[in-house]
């Protein structure tokens, strides 16, 4: 069996290498992916049509917003799937009494975390909101925000973190994030345009068609960030406690 594994790896490697023979040169300006009609449309028209300087965000949240919606759903499914497989309700009898409860990682860690946590959360919100101008956006900011709650759980104990972000709240936030994203698309439907066609919203958002697209991107990024935050924390708490949600790492 090992032999077949090695053989298939060699064959696949050979295939992949043989394909590179026909590739455009590294950094070639005239390659189809760089100068094709689609890419040149993104590069030339993004600023004009959406008023977003960072065209990655525009491609992510507007041109291919339908993809991003499903990426968010993928994250949602990952969290729900972990809960569905791991979570055990009720019976905590198997755990010895002295192990229930989680007092955290000690005084020094608590002090450090209390100093840096607010700044990490602030930075996370900055990353979410600043995605139009610099690298960032819902996924990255959501991960930072989720990480800040994980940090809280590590330093102060899971019980403390759960008092901020209970299980019910994680589920509500996760569903709410997708609800914001999809609901924004449905709002466009209600306004009489295609799904996720943000330009239909210029009558209720200030600043014309282009700014409507820009604002809508911010809205859907916030939805993504909510889902990612909640799912990050939910995954951590479920995986580190084997689904019992009693005592952290």
């Amino acid at each position: 069996m090992k032999f077949f594994g090695l053989l298939s790896v060699i064959i696949v490697g050979f295939l992949l290498l043989s394909a590179t023979k026909d590739f455009p040169n590294w950094g070639d300006e005239d390659s189809p992916a760089n100068s094709g009609p689609v890419s040149s449309f993104y590069i030339e028209k993004t600023e004009e049509k959406t008023k977003v300087p960072n065209m990655v965000t525009a491609v992510l949240a507007d041109y291919r917003g339908y993809d991003t919606m499903f990426e968010t759903v993928v994250i949602f499914i990952a969290g729900i799937g972990i809960i569905a497989v791991l979570r055990t309700y009720g019976s905590n009898e198997s755990i010895p009494k002295n192990q229930v409860g989680d007092e955290g990682a000690g005084l020094l860690a608590r002090m450090t975390c209390s100093l840096i946590l607010p700044f990490i959360q602030l930075f996370a919100l900055y990353v979410v909101a600043h995605g139009h101008h610099s690298p960032g956006g819902g996924f990255q900011g959501g991960v930072m925000l989720g990480a800040s709650y994980i940090l809280l759980a590590l330093a102060y104990g899971l019980a403390r973190a759960k008092s901020c972000f209970s299980e019910k709240r994680t589920l509500v936030f996760a569903a709410l994030g997708i609800f914001i994203y999809v609901g924004w698309g449905v709002l466009c439907l209600v306004m009489g345009s295609e799904f996720l066609n943000y330009s239909a919203l210029d009558s209720i958002l200030p600043g014309g068609v282009e700014m409507a697209r820009s604002h809508s991107m911010l809205a859907v990024e916030i939805g993504v960030a909510l889902t990612v935050t909640a799912i990050m924390f939910s995954m951590f708490s479920n995986l580190s406690t084997k689904g019992r949600l009693d005592k952290g790492l």
Partner: peptide, 13 residues
């Protein structure tokens, strides 16, 4: 999706 009409014959959305 998003009402992006094809420009120069290729779909952008």
């Amino acid at each position: 999706m998003g009402g992006w009409d094809p420009s120069s014959g290729y779909e952008v959305g």
